[in-house]
Design a binder for these strands. Structure first.
Length: 427
RNA sequence: GGAGAGAUGGCUGAGUUGGUCGAAAGCGCUCGACUCGAAAUCGAGUAGGCGAGUUGAUAGCUUGCCUCGAGAGUUCGAAUCUCUCUCUCUCCGCCA
């Protein structure tokens, strides 16, 4: 019996939900689910009747034994019933596990407001903030700026570890820490998030809960001879914090912020962003996670986006927000906004945050529910959301590139100075 | 890493010669009585999940099944016996 995790996805309500949207997932899959479910309900009904009988007769046996009456016929009759029960139980368990495996591979259904498109080229721009600065000299890339300043050492990173790993030195390391502190302070003090310091490795069950497993195992680093994976984002430990729990409605919305390193194998990204800090096996990120009532989740998505955007606004770095189209949407998300920051050396906007509403997709898999305080209060799945607030490494890059001068000096944005011992420049 | 103990309802904590135990008792909480009000006292209620019936109802009411860390097993029947796993605690060792 699996009553945790996506076991709940067998429920009538979830099936109806899928059926309602049948135009968006293959009819075949829906039919499969429907057949499975029907078979399961029939067996369940049969076995429950048998069990009711067994429970009743067991009590009779107990009573007769106490009275010293013979019980042989009853017991031998019950042996047959128990055998039948076993057959049905096995059948149900088999259906459950097949159904579960099957459901785990079905992606979330995009929200009605998500634009149709086949890839990132169809992602409409929603808003743009600030305008890229006109430089009167040839801009340098962050790798060159950082290396020259002695705050970034990719060569030695390659020596001690390998490609797609980095070493920040001196003021570069301090800047990383300043960015982290600034973001954490902003979100905890101004935006009402509670800070969490989660483990950087989690078990496979958590990875299933948020949707990384079973489909995306190759994107993860797994620790040998254990069930542990290095987290690809703090979303995983934070969202799973309440797995298998029923939260009080009055506690919602719950808002967490965490700074963690993130680990990604970046399998399949050969040749992409090979230079610099844009795409690494390990990078720092400040992550925002929310648990809320279903009817509030799209409001919460908007405020999540606002909270994340605030970081770049305060730093004074130009950025834009795009809405991911259906083709670019992640496996688990129902709707996603990307925040893209301006990178002068690439003359383009690059993703620095991804803010998503997963609706009840993760909540079903991780079995996270809530319940009202009233008498007739029902339990229902929460909605989960998360967004980067922001990717720290890419923020570091954006600061170097957007605030460089002709001599290679870097202007430190005002909000970070308190965290940099009052320094105004990196030089 | 070595040795040992344990995991029961919101909490504390009974229950281990298998049989009206989903579970004593206490605390907490809810409702009621008393009170001007409160405290104290007294009375009643108080785990979750999934189905079925009734209903306009995802309200109530009636009813079945499952759950005493998780999974598997023994048995007509398991919180109670066996095995595996997970976690917690104590002592020793080691260590940031």
């Amino acid at each position: 019996m699996s009553d945790s995790g996506i076991g709940r996805e067998k429920s009538k309500a979830s099936l109806e939900l899928l059926l309602k949207k049948h135009d968006q997932i293959e009819i075949e899959k829906v039919t499969t689910i429907r057949n499975f479910d029907e078979e399961r309900r029939n067996s369940l009904f049969q076995v429950e009747q048998l069990k009711a009988n067994r429970n009743k007769v067991s009590m009779e046996i107990a009573a007769k034994k106490k009275a010293g009456e013979p019980t042989e016929e009853l017991i031998s009759g019950m042996k047959k019933v128990s055998d039948q029960i076993k057959v049905y139980d096995e059948k149900i368990a088999s259906i459950d596990s097949q159904l579960e495996e099957f459901l785990l591979t079905i992606p979330n259904i995009p929200h009605d407001s998500v634009p149709i498109g086949i890839g990132d080229l169809e992602n409409p721009e929603r808003e743009r903030f600030g305008s890229p600065k006109k430089f009167s000299f040839p801009v340098k890339a962050h790798v060159d700026l950082g290396t020259k300043l002695g705050i970034l050492d990719l060569e030695r990173a390659g020596k001690i570890a390998g490609a797609r790993l980095s070493v920040l030195m001196r003021k570069g390391a301090q800047l990383e820490r300043a960015i982290i502190s600034f973001m954490l302070d902003l979100h905890t003090r101004e935006h009402g998030y509670s800070e969490v310091a989660p483990p950087l490795m989690v078990n496979s069950s958590s990875m299933r809960g948020t949707g990384q497993l079973p489909k995306f195992e190759t994107d993860l680093f797994k620790l040998q001879n254990t069930d542990y994976y290095l987290i690809p984002t703090a979303e995983v430990p934070l969202t799973n914090l309440f797995s298998g729990e029923i939260l009080g409605e009055s506690e919602l919305t719950i808002k967490f912020v965490a700074y963690t390193p993130c680990f990604r194998s970046e399998a399949g990204s050969y040749g992409k962003d090979t230079r610099g800090l844009i795409r690494l096996h390990q990078f720092d990120k400040v992550e925002l996670v929310k648990f809320c009532r279903p009817d509030r989740s799209y409001e919460e998505l908007e405020s999540l986006l606002t909270d994340a955007s605030k970081v770049l606004k305060l730093l004074g770095i130009p950025f834009r927000i795009v809405t991911l189209s259906t083709g670019d949407l992640g496996f688990a998300a129902a709707k996603t906004y990307d925040i893209e920051v301006w990178l002068p050396s690439q003359n383009t906007y690059r993703e620095i945050s991804s803010c998503s509403n997963f609706e009840d997709f993760q909540a079903r898999r991780a079995n996270i529910r809530f319940k009202g305080d009233g008498k007739g209060a029902k339990t229902a799945y929460v909605h989960t959301l998360n967004g980067s607030g922001l990717a720290v490494g890419r923020t570091w890059v954006a600061i170097l590139e957007n605030f460089q001068d002709e001599s290679g000096k870097i202007f430190i944005p005002e909000p970070l100075r308190p965290y940099m011992g009052g320094a105004t420049h990196l030089e």
